[in-house]
Design a protein around this nucleic acid. Structure first.
Lengths: 142, 142
DNA sequence: TATTGTTATACTCTATAACTATA
DNA sequence: TATAGTTATAGAGTATAACAATA
């Protein structure tokens, strides 16, 4: 009898990721936002000004994209550019009250677990939380 | 003593997925493909012709997008349009030999697990596989 | 008449390069 | 001189609407 191959969770996570990729555009459309705008809004927490450069880095995209992205969000009154306290080259982003409301809805729907997850047994949910927490700690601080 | 809140794996999965979202463009760039082209190539298995309409449905996008997407993949010699055997309105996609080679590299890199995952104990990997399998079954066939 | 895929059009996302204003 | 952000430009993704060929 041959030794069993080690279990491979990664292909399953990839499938989950790709399945989820099709979900974001739908949610975004309901809020009349693009997926990229959702990503920005999700990253921009209330009461936490975010320098534009830092946003570009987190989005892993060029700074010039952020300009246009923020232009459109600002035109809709969801965010505001503000001069930074220290370095006057830096501009920080803040949510407007309207932006904070839209973000709250977005986060709520983004965080609504799919029905399949609700049906997991309690022990499995605990196991999943424990393992994923370990993964994320490990990924952010290797 | 209050009853403990039920463990919530979903926010953790979302964080993992969003973190991963920044990875795909990098991998795609290395293969001189766009993320969307990667998605098409990933869905197009060798020896398995795929009708364009079915591709549009899986990508959850409009059929007109698929036309342009496939135009570019075809211009690079990675896929070919073929008339369908039955319904003559339908055109099916097949990988060219070159496309199959590029896809093999893509799938290999896509499926390479992140280091954090490799460090999980065997029992945890088994648990993760079991739970995610259940999730995916449930999600695709509710 | 309904469906598959295309074309035309418009807007958004993304990257590169050149520019402005600070540092 | 180097850095933060903008502008100009180009290519790719996405949706809508009108259309051709086929069912």
């Amino acid at each position: 009898m041959k030794p069993a191959a080690p279990p491979e969770p990664w292909p399953l996570l990839i499938r989950l990721l790709l399945a989820q990729r099709a979900n974001l555009p739908t949610l975004a459309a309901e809020l009349e936002l693009s997926p990229a705008q959702c990503h920005v809004l999700h990253l921009l927490e209330p009461e936490r000004p975010l320098p534009m450069g830092q946003l570009a880095e987190t989005l892993a995209c060029h700074a010039s994209n952020v300009t246009g992205l923020v232009d459109r969000l600002e035109a809709r009154g969801l965010v505001r550019r503000q001069p930074s306290a220290g370095d006057r080259r830096v501009r920080v982003l803040v949510l407007t009250p309207s932006g904070a409301r839209v973000r709250a809805v977005l986060v709520e729907r983004l965080m609504a677990p799919p029905p399949a997850l609700e049906r997991l047994a309690l022990v499995e949910r605990r196991a999943l939380v424990r393992i994923l927490s370990r993964l994320l700690e490990d990924a952010t601080e290797p």
